[in-house]
Design a protein around this nucleic acid. Structure first.
Lengths: 103, 103
DNA sequence: TCTATTGTTCGAATATAATCGAACAATAGA
DNA sequence: TCTATTGTTCGATTATATTCGAACAATAGA
């Protein structure tokens, strides 16, 4: 079963993380993943964007180390790499999620 | 004495903040301001960039609510709006600064 | 093997950002 | 008033990002 490659958390730069989080669509994806607390397929987000656009944003989230995508059958299951990000950038993701919550 | 206008912290969006912090030059400016713990002139940073480029980055830092610029004579004194950002986005700037520290 | 489902990749168009020299503005001080 | 200092603004160039339709790839299930 083919799987997508992800960066090791050590090689993720802070600028990559900030950049990934600077787009409203991607922030929304991150917020929903966090709120759901489970793996979600790309299709589940329903953000009124064509799939090529969604795929683009997921690619950037993956390259920033924020999202891990596991292929299960024809579906791509996406999960936040909460522990990895927390280890590499303690507090950053948590506080961003908190800010998203009350927005 | 003319002064530069800054956004009220309430109207700063999280995406603005993330975007401002996604550029290496701007992160460096923020890191130095935090490390210095005092107001600094644009010229003090000495990042080997023309002043028009530096001015551009400061403009973005200001629009993100991160930096406050006070004009004193011919100098523009820049300070991090630590308290404002902390109030609006608790923990975000602190954790980013911590991540910058050990990088 | 054929088809439907789920995403990715490609390519092109549009939009946004970074960069930097040159001109400009405000002020301090001679 | 003249000059030096400090940044900003302007304008043009180059580089990156976003967007989306269309074509493609992998898999499940009939």
């Amino acid at each position: 079963m083919r799987q997508i490659k992800h960066p090791a958390i050590e090689q993720v730069e802070l600028t990559d993380l900030m950049y990934a989080l600077s787009d409203p669509t991607r922030l929304e994806i991150v917020a929903r993943l966090a709120a759901a607390g489970r793996k979600m397929t790309c299709g589940e987000f329903d953000l009124n964007r064509p799939k090529s656009s969604m795929s683009h944003h997921f690619k950037i989230l993956r390259s920033a180390g924020l999202v891990e995508t596991l292929i299960e059958g024809t579906e791509h299951m996406n999960a936040l790499r909460v522990a990895d990000i927390e280890q590499k950038f303690p507090g950053v993701l948590q506080s961003v999620l908190k800010a998203l919550d009350q927005a």
